[in-house]
Amino acid sequence: MEAHNPQVNTLTTKKAKLNKKKNMMFWGWILIAPTLIGLLVLNIFPVIQTVYLSFHSVSTFGQSTFIGLENYIKMFNDADFWQSLSNTLLYAGIQVPVTVVLSTLAAVLLNTKIKGLSVYRTLYFLPMIAAPAAVAMVWRWLFNSQYGLINLMIESLGFNADIQWLSDPSLVLWAVIIVGVWSSVGYNMILLLAGLQEISKDYYEAATMDGASKLRQFFQITLPLLTPQLFFVLVTSIISALQVFDVIFVMFDVTNPSLSSVQSLVYVFFHESYVLNDKGYGSAIIIVLVLIIMIITVIQLLGQKKWVNYD
């Protein structure tokens, strides 16, 4: 109707468009502002500050002096650091595969048409919602060499039950691994179960018609189609396993002679930074951990093309 003056029309729409753009920009920045400022102040700047601190000696009363690489040199000569690094890697190397296998098994079994699905799901997830201090405390009690339920059960199966779970240097890490697996199976199982439920039944029907056995179906259909979830579970499990702390902190006293065989990098970081109050050295330790985690994660992201199926 108003087409009789096309020139004016385009001008106003241009203006309107420009206004709209400005308006969008204004609101866009307003809306992201709190999160952006928060992330800069609470996360991005702290990363820089931690790097800075790691080159400094920070005294009890807050003064910091530049000491170059001294914290890192100290770290590479610190037997405790190497021991805790190996503890951390060993922990992740065992806890993650065991957790992934068990949670896959649980998810596959729950993805069948059996009764009680929601009951099982509820129970398996229970460890995830308990406070870690409570979890670690009850496990510490279960592992007690004299009064513990675990040794009692082992004994009732007819084995020698004088197992010092919490003080034998060759066993302490296993105690932490058991707790680690126990508390994360349910969480990963739910992620995997969600993935399984997305797999179309048609695949199985076709395979059954072709006469493929259940086992073959599992390896040829289920596993490949589950790889996106498996990948996610693997990446997140490794990251959190490398950060293990709570359980060790609560289950092992500072006076425990086997502490060095079980302490993780994050534990040493905590101890150095907040018990011994050497925040410079603590920062150096945490930076090494972060680098390790980033490297492992990047390798996984690069390697995923080889096995993860995103169709």
């Binding site: 969008m24 866009g28 920045w29 952006l36 990363v47 994050v266 925040k279 945490i286 972060v290």
Partner: peptide, 27 residues
């Protein structure tokens, strides 16, 4: 919304998620 800077912002979000939280702790 479409506005300049939004991709940079989202990159910051993703970066934060990638970094283990202990590194923020002392600062």
């Amino acid at each position: 919304l479409e506005f300049p800077g939004k991709n940079v912002f989202f990159m910051i979000v993703l970066t934060q998620m990638m970094i283990p939280p202990q590194i923020f702790l002392t600062p």
